[in-house]
Design a protein around this nucleic acid. Structure first.
Lengths: 232, 232
DNA sequence: AATGAGTGTTAAATCTTGTTAAGCCTGAGC
DNA sequence: GCTCAGGCTTAACAAGATTTAACACTCATT
């Protein structure tokens, strides 16, 4: 499973070459022809990174970037452009870009830059997805079975309870951001999904009461942290 | 006071310009003249990001990068080079670099790239540090538990209280600068965040009243200092 | 001493989270 | 198709955390 990449490029030639190359490299690219199509597509499915041409018909790349960041403030963005003036590159970064490449560029370099950025983004967490069992204090959590076991009595979890506990366990002793969690489990970050998540946190806290060393603490305005003092 | 940057550049001219510019931008750059000096320095103090020239006497930048990554596998690295061939840039990424810049380059662009990378790294994360327990006079502070313990009664701290006390404790008997603190915990340094910080200082002072030997004193125009007379 | 910027402190206002329970779907079994 | 149970969402209120406002005080400078 490769990273999902949105490519917005109006030149059909370059667009197709890009798509083919990224496909070959094991990514999952989606090609859009202009800004508006890009924004619509972005709202329909989740992406891990965007590659945007700056000069696009109807809506330029910077404007599109702003709209995308309005939806998803952490999505990595790489700008492509024909201009190579330093001021233009600077514009790219000031518009919230993570990187900026000047045409013509080497496909391999682009793919390496994509890798370098994904290495630092949340995309990594996807790689940890095959780990499905966790030790949490004196508990043992099996995600696939949705079971939270404890010498003192087991608990059968629901799907969402298990999904949330898994994300917390993967970030044990680190902050798990609300926004990221909501986008991953609920698919969107709204007032209601947020309240729903709080309800699930309350449930998990109840289940985890059997071990004093285990706590879910709130990081005000940021998210939650599953603390396991046994390991800390 | 900003991110700690290690710059390794043998050309004294460019090296100094880089250092000065980064200084001006609010970073804390340390300049090394060659690879070996770079590696020694790296082992002596913590850095948030490295900027390495590729062509260096004695030990080239790629080799240095490998040695640094051996110590610290997640530190972000930007390579600088005179060559602009795509193959060289590709070499940079294959050697674990996060970015690659070709001389001559714009200082502003470099600083923007540094920002873009730091944004995705754990630099801002006060919550992921290693040392998490502190002795402050007759108090014992556990950051992870957010507990300030004292024989005379414990205090449960909030997230921000704990974050601020941690920064003070890390700088015990030294000055903790306002600006640095605000950028680290609040993310920005404005009039309001500054007032907010003052409110938190007042709270911490209340909690620390149980030990006469412990005080938070103000360094006018600079910041605060957590003074522990027991250890001084 | 007068000025203006920086700090101390408290309280109110705002925003976020905790918790419980009621409401609403959906799918299994009848 | 009807009913029920389980699981998730929404509502509602309580409690908590942080920010903003207000006013008093201190410090450095003139």
């Amino acid at each position: 499973m490769g990273a999902k990449i949105m490519v917005v490029e109006d030149d059909p030639n370059l667009g197709n070459i890009l798509k083919e190359y990224l496909d070959l490299k094991g990514y999952e690219p989606t090609l859009c022809r202009h800004g508006e199509e890009g924004f619509e597509t972005y709202n329909k499915q989740p992406f891990d990174i965007c590659i945007l041409d700056v000069m696009l018909p109807f809506m330029d790349g910077f404007t599109l970037a702003k709209k995308i960041r309005g939806v998803d403030k952490d999505i990595p963005i790489i700008f492509l452009t024909a201009k190579s003036l330093p001021e233009d590159r600077i514009q790219g970064f000031k518009n919230g870009g993570d990187d900026y490449m000047t045409k013509p560029f080497s496909m391999e370099e682009l793919s390496l830059r994509v890798d370098a950025i994904l290495r630092r983004s949340h995309f990594n967490d996807v790689f940890d997805n095959n780990v499905n069992e966790f030790d949490i204090g004196t508990y043992h959590f099996n995600f696939v079975e949705q079971m939270l076991r404890h010498p003192n009595g087991d608990t059968k979890l629901t799907t969402k309870e298990a999904a949330l506990l898994k994300m917390l366990a993967q970030h044990k002793n680190k902050v798990l951001e609300r926004e990221y969690t909501l986008k991953t489990i609920w698919g969107e970050d709204s007032y209601f999904t947020a309240r729903s998540m709080d309800v699930f946190i309350a449930k998990l806290r109840k289940y985890l009461k059997k071990d004093e060393q285990v706590k879910i603490i709130n990081i005000h305005g940021k998210g939650y942290k599953l603390v396991d003092l046994q390991k800390a």
